[in-house]
Simulated scan of single mutants.
Amino acid sequence: MRPFEDVVTEHGRTVLRVCRAVVGPDDAEEAWSETFLSALRAYPDLPADANVEAWLVTIAHRRALDVGRARSRRAAPTDTLPERPATHADPADRDPDLWPALARLPHKQRLAVAYHHIAGLPFADIATLLGNSPDAARRAAADGIKNLRALYTKDQTP
């Protein structure tokens, strides 16, 4: 089995993108950290033929939901936020209007778009994560992209 550090290096950016899509950019790093802490504990028992990326995305999905639930229990944020340096380059970082448009998608559409178009997972794996069929996952991703285009275009027009 290859070293866990190599797994983090290879799949860390994908996991971060999934976390951002599920909980947004503010809580993504916390979900990312929780994902890899959980993965580190379970990694020695992972079968040699396992799809590591799909396994990590599944963990990221669950940890991100946990972080989102915890966020909903926190006190209200302040009016101003401290500046945070960009630690991970991401295509969506070049266009800050993309994240709000993604956040406005219905939950399953947002997750299907993130898992397929950001993480690159096949629809069979997405169906397992979302608790539906591969056809329903494919449809949710297609509808999500359609809605994202409409929302994003609408946000861009003056």
Rank of each mutant, 00 (worst) to 15 (best):
R84W: 05
A124W: 03
Q156N: 13
L111D: 02
I126D: 00
V8F: 07
A112M: 00
T128G: 09
P158S: 14
K154H: 14
H117E: 09
V18I: 15
P134W: 06
C19P: 04
A89W: 11
D95Q: 11
Y152Q: 10
G12Y: 02
P91M: 07
N132Y: 07
G12E: 02
L46H: 05
L56N: 02
I126V: 00
V7I: 14
G144P: 03
A31Q: 04
T153Y: 15
L105R: 10
L37I: 08
A112C: 00
S133E: 03
E29W: 15
N132V: 14
A28W: 00
A103E: 13
E34Q: 14
T9L: 13
A42S: 14
H116Y: 05
L111S: 03
E53S: 07
I126T: 00
V67I: 05
D95T: 08
L151M: 15
V8I: 13
A42V: 08
V23L: 04
A48I: 14
V15A: 07
L121S: 01
M1Y: 02
H117G: 06
A141N: 06
L98Q: 14
D49A: 12
R138M: 07
F4Y: 09
E53L: 10
W55L: 03
D26C: 08
C19V: 01
R94G: 14
W55D: 11
A127R: 02
M1H: 02
A140I: 00
I126F: 01
D143V: 01
V52L: 11
D49E: 08
D27C: 15
K108S: 11
P47V: 06
V8Q: 08
G131K: 05
Y115W: 13
L111Q: 04
A70K: 08
G24N: 04
P122E: 10
R62Y: 11
R84Q: 11
A141P: 01
E83H: 12
V8P: 02
D93E: 07
L98R: 14
D135T: 15
R2Q: 09
A42K: 12
P3C: 11
V8M: 12
I145P: 06
V113K: 08
A112E: 01
Y43I: 02
A60P: 01
E30A: 14
T58F: 14
T128E: 12
A150I: 06
D45I: 11
